[in-house]
Amino acid sequence: MSSYAQPHSRVSVLSTSSQSSVEHLSPAASSTRFSLPSIPTTPQPKPAGVRPNIYDRNLNKTRITEVSAAAFTFLFSETVQYTQKRVSGINDLERRLNTLGYRIGTRVLELMVWRAEGQSKAPKREIRLLPALMSIHTQVWRAVFGKPADAIEKSVDNADEYMIVDNDPLIERYISVPRDMSQLSCSSFTAGIVEAVLDGLGFPARVTAHSTPKAQYPSCTTILIKLEKSVLEREEVLK
């Protein structure tokens, strides 16, 4: 019978106390009632919505943290679908994805170089084309995708064209392009990032993405960089 007596006594305690004051209805008091782990009240938890200002945060804090691939894939899939509803063709879609990537690229460049050079006594800039392309191939890819790109090639036919090859682009891993849109390459987004980095470094270029499937790498993608004439002229002068 004692097992029945216990709840009764509790109810009676509650009823008398609730008559005496309404304070006991507050969450702090009810925690004893439901025997939840008691919340320490002295260090007030930060009110929701107030987050540390960006200027108070350390830029190196997120250096080695990673983003969930699943979450990113969902976001990117929504991005592509959203964009697709608002364009008239594949070219337009690729151009818009490129623009979105460009916004990322400007930030990637500043942040990446700050992390590499910010603490050094004499921070360096890149003014030659080939080292800049190499740093895109390794550093930018590592900062964005966590691994260097698979190859960098120079076009045989055109002196102003360079290609960066990624055998398994992260952003296309869960994308299958319909047959009637086979020209579409969602890596236009990556192309935008590359374009922004090149622009920032002072090598204006037109960057596009093309699917170049191989036997063992069906989603292999080539990022084609077509440099502006002024870049090659400057390289000649600097030689």
Partner: peptide, 23 residues
């Protein structure tokens, strides 16, 4: 430079937006 990089990380900031942050 560090302050500018932090400003730049704001998704609404572009390279051509005037910096008006009081902080």
């Amino acid at each position: 430079w560090e302050l500018y990089v932090k400003t730049m990380l704001n998704p609404f900031h572009t390279a051509h937006t005037p910096v008006r942050s009081a902080v």
